[in-house]
Design a protein around this nucleic acid. Sequence first.
DNA 1: GTTTGATATATCTGTTTGATATATTAGCAC
DNA 2: GTGCTAATATATCAAACAGATATATCAAAC
Lengths: 177, 177
Amino acid sequence: MARERKIDMVILGLLSHEDLTGYDIKKRIDGAISFFWKGSFGNIYPALKDMEDQELITKKDVSSSGREKIAYHITKRGKKVLSGWLKDEQAINELRYETLLKLFFGGVQDKKVSVHNIEVFEKQVRDDLELLKEYAKTLKSSLDDEDHLYFYLTATFGIDSYEAYLKWCAKAKKLLA
Amino acid sequence: MARERKIDMVILGLLSHEDLTGYDIKKRIDGAISFFWKGSFGNIYPALKDMEDQELITKKDVSSSGREKIAYHITKRGKKVLSGWLKDEQAINELRYETLLKLFFGGVQDKKVSVHNIEVFEKQVRDDLELLKEYAKTLKSSLDDEDHLYFYLTATFGIDSYEAYLKWCAKAKKLLA
DNA sequence: GTTTGATATATCTGTTTGATATATTAGCAC
DNA sequence: GTGCTAATATATCAAACAGATATATCAAAC
C-alpha cells in the first residue's frame, strides 16, 4: 500500500503559485509553513525527481553561468492531484511535544526540573509568538489578495494557540509551586 | 552523529513506574501520551532490544503456557539516562497539522472546500476535547498522588489548546463566509 | 585577494510510521 | 463443544522523514 507522501502536496501547493527550484522550496517551507509542517532536502529532492517521472511537474534548466539551477513547474496532472488532496477531508493532525513528554514523566525528578522545562518552553513560545504577530500584521493589511486570507488564517491559528500555551504555562507553574 | 532516539525515553519513562511488555508499552503510549507523542511496534521492539544490549533495561520471561511474553525492567543505568534526558532543557516541539497545510493552499479551491475542512477538524477536536476532559476529571480527584499531578498538567495543556482551536474555527469560518 | 555566508545540488544514516505476518488466548454465539 | 471474533503478543519490512554532510558556485564584505 503506497502511502501518500505529504511532501509532494507541499511542493505542488507551492508550485501552484510560482515556479521554484528545490532550494527555493526549502526556503518557502522554512518560512511561514514551518510552524505546522516541516520539510528537508532529504525528502524534497527525491520527491521532485519522482514527481517529474509521474509528470506532475516539469523541470527546466535555468542555470546562469556555472551555477546549476533547475526550476520546476506544475502540470495539469499535478494541479489535479493537488486539488484531489485538498478536497479529501482526511487529514493527519498531530502534536510532537517533547516538553510535554518530559512533564508527563516529571514525577521522577524534583519539581524544579519540570518548572525549568516549562520556563524554557515559555520563552520559545513567546519568541515565536512575536514573529507570528509581525507576520500576521503585514498580511492583514493586504487581505484583498485572496491568497493572503489563507496565509492569515494559518497565522492566527498559531497566534491563538501560542497565547493559550502561555496561559497554560502560568497555571502549570503555579500548580507546581 | 548518533541522534537521541526519543522512543527510548518514552519507554524508560514508562518502565520507571512499572515493569511492562512491548505490547503493554504500546497500549500505554496509545492512551494518555498519544496526543503529544506517538509510538509504534516498529520502533518499540527494536528499541527494547537495543536498550537491553546497553543494559538500560533487563528482560524476564513471564510467558504463561504457550503464549510468549517478555516483561522489561529498568536498571540503575536506565534511570540515570532517563534522569539526564529530563534535566536536559533541549526539547523538540513541533506541530504537524495537515488541516493547516490544506488551508494554507486553500486559494487553489473554492472557499467551500476550506470551510468543510475546518468543520471536519472542528468535529475531531470537539470529540478529543470531550475525552481529555473526562480524563482530567478523574485525575483531578486524585492529585494527592504525586504522579497524577504531572498527568493532569499534560491533560490541561490539551484541553486549553483544543479550546483555543475551537474558538479559532469559529473565527476562521466567519472570515471565509 | 580572501574569507564568509548564501545559493544550489544531492546523498547518507538513522529514526519513525504504517502495514503486514504469525500465533495464542478469551469471550461469546449457536 | 465448535466456530467466530477481538484482544494479546511477538516481530519485521518498506516507505517516509529528519538531520547531517558533501560538493561547488557566487556575491559581498574586509
